[in-house]
């Protein structure tokens, strides 16, 4: 590679974009999943502390922000593997382009680390509430950004939706709560996290519904995206792994646990994590498969 000139071909002129986009493999879905997970782990401990006025008792909940930073680093590792020009990552940080979600993302990623560290460290010289609210904001921005990243790729009908940001944030919250639920927790935190997880799953289901309704009632390209998700190649994975195994069944488990006061079992959190990962894979892969080139004229 010539070290001085890096030539990139943008948009649909890039030969990898049409007729089917196949440039993104497992790295991007994994990055989006871990990014969402990190967002959940930034927000949840801070939100619990803000609601109660004192730090959560469970060690693992307190460690949440650090876990978030670790998972985010893992995800960035996957993202880095995907980059064509690995030596030029630093160029993201020479500029800030307000109109580019990728630029926003690069800066959000940098912001998350110090905030996560401060949220965990709790130094006396910083106002605690301000730190916590910053953690919630940084986590929210991170979660929404993972969805906007796909939405910004206008060359794909399946990603052309503003709902993806909130959807990935909701999924990040549910998977974040699920990951914490798999760790040893104090009873009160477990109780709270199961409820938060259930609410996040309901929100996720509702946002998926909005996404589908948006596609179904949109123009022809949106219709095509709807078709790809609901009847084409990825439909079986979407309905079976995301809707049934990833949302409905864990929600039933959590409802049973809350209503009938049954003992906690790890099934729901594991399914939520599987569902969250599947959601990223299905949306990325079905989005790549949906092309403007074939929409019904």
């Amino acid at each position: 590679m010539d070290p001085t000139i890096v030539e990139t071909v943008h948009g649909r002129a890039n030969p990898l974009v049409d007729p089917t986009l196949s440039v993104w493999g497992w790295e991007i879905p994994v990055y989006l999943f871990l990014g969402g997970l990190a967002a959940g782990l930034m927000i949840l401990p801070a939100a619990l502390e803000l609601a109660r006025g004192r730090r959560p008792d469970s060690v693992w909940v307190r460690l949440g922000p650090l876990l978030a930073a670790a998972l985010l680093s893992l995800g960035m590792g996957a993202l880095f593997l995907d980059l064509e020009h690995k030596l030029y990552v630093w160029r993201f940080y020479l500029a800030f382009k307000p109109a580019s979600p990728m630029s926003w993302g690069a800066w959000i990623l940098v912001l998350v680390y110090p905030v996560a560290f401060l949220a965990w460290w709790d130094p006396a010289w910083l106002p605690r509430r301000a730190v916590l609210w910053t953690a919630v904001a940084a986590g929210g921005a991170l979660g929404i950004y993972t969805g906007i990243l796909l939405g910004a790729m206008a060359a794909r009908p399946g990603w052309n939706s503003a709902v993806l940001g909130p959807l990935f944030l909701a999924s990040g919250l549910s998977t974040g709560a699920a990951l914490l639920l798999l760790l040893p927790l104090d009873a009160r935190d477990r109780h709270a996290l199961v409820r938060i997880d259930a609410v996040a799953l309901v929100a996720e289901a509702a946002l998926l519904g909005v996404l589908l309704i948006g596609f179904a009632s949109g123009d022809r390209t949106a219709h095509l995206a709807f078709e790809h998700l609901t009847t084409r190649n990825w439909a079986s994975a979407f309905w079976s792994l995301v809707v049934v195994a990833g949302i409905s069944v864990p929600l039933a488990f959590e409802a049973l646990e809350i209503r009938r006061k049954l003992a906690f079992v790890a099934v729901a959190p594991v399914l939520v994590l599987v569902g969250g990962l599947s959601l990223r894979f299905v949306l990325v892969l079905s989005g790549q498969a949906s092309s403007f080139d074939e929409f019904p004229g």
């Binding site: 009847t231 084409r232 190649n233 439909a235 079986s236 309905w239 079976s240 049934v244 195994a245 069944v249």
Partner: peptide, 15 residues
């Protein structure tokens, strides 16, 4: 219905 729905119905019948 199509093949994908056939698979999804498999999951539901399996449940």
């Amino acid at each position: 219905f199509g093949y994908e729905a056939f698979l999804v119905l498999g999951t539901l019948i399996g449940v």
